[in-house]
Structure formats: structure tokens, C-alpha cells
Amino acid sequence: MNRFEELLIEEIPSLRRYARALCGDHVQADDLVQECLLRAVSRRKLWIGRRGMRPWLFTILHNIYVNSLRRLSSSPVVASIENLERQSASEQDADLHCVVSDFEKALRQLSDEQREVLLLVGLEQMSYKEISKITRVPVGTVMSRLSRAREQLRQSLEGDIKPAIIKRVK
């Protein structure tokens, strides 16, 4: 195994975490990560090590995610039985966890663009500049998306009475 592969493997956990936050479904998220890794490997010559591995991978992941959204919105959703089962399983899972559900619901209701920026800031702790490169929009746009996302989420916080105490009941 070479340095490139080592670096790639190091980033898998954070890619998965971010993809899961984006998709809300871990099987879909791993599909996304798998595609991202395959593309990274096939374009390894484009990675010169100048930019860190992380922003590069997140950029690839972003592009795949955005393209898949376009595909989804332009084609009817055909759900296989397996997917339906998965879905109901993850719904049950969500019931079990029952963590701060108002907040999670609000998170789901953000636009894809807003959620992406919010997650890159909050979850991945990336700088506005890095996010601007990944999502290919100006820093000002990153900030306005972030601001709108936080504004919406703030309202859901106010609905919650005891935020940190409601832990999963398992």
C-alpha cells in the first residue's frame, strides 16, 4: 500500500460521517463514499499533494452528490422492495434513538445547499474558504447559505425545552 492509499483510508471515516449526514441513510451514504473513492483512485494523477487530501475528496464527494440529486429530481423515484425495507428499518432506528427529533427534522428540511454548508462548518469544521472551493461558490454565498440554515435551525432549538438531556432510549 502506498502513501496515497493510506491517506485515502484515513479519510474514509470522516467521508462516511459527512455522507451519512447528507443522505440520512447509511447504505446510500456508503454508496456515495464508494463512488468517491473509486473516482479518487482513477484520478490519482490529478492529486499532486498540493492541496490536502481532505478538501480534494470532499470536492469529489460534493460533485457526485450534486449530480445524483440532479438525477433524482429529473427521474421518478423507483424504490425496490429492499429499499423500502431499509427505509422502514431506518425509520424504526430513528424512533429508537429519538434524539432531539425537532432539530433533526429541521435539519432535514433545509435545502440541500444549506445543509451541505452547515454540515461542512459544524460537523467537519472546515473554513469558509475551503467550503467555497468544495462547493464552487463564492465565500459570500457560503455565508448566506450558512446564515439562512442557522436561522431556520435556531427556531427549532427554541421549540426544544431540554436539548441536551433527551438522550437515546436504548
Binding site: 451519512r20 449526514a21 434513538h97 434524539v99 432539530f103 433533526e104 435539519l107 460537523l123 442557522r150 436539548p163
Partner: peptide, 14 residues
Amino acid sequence: INRRVREIYDEKQP
């Protein structure tokens, strides 16, 4: 908000 986002998704590490 940042804290909650991390809390939610760190817990869901498979």
C-alpha cells in the same frame, strides 16, 4: 447548532 450536529452524527458512527 454545531454541537448538536456533531452529537447526532458522531453517535451514528457505524
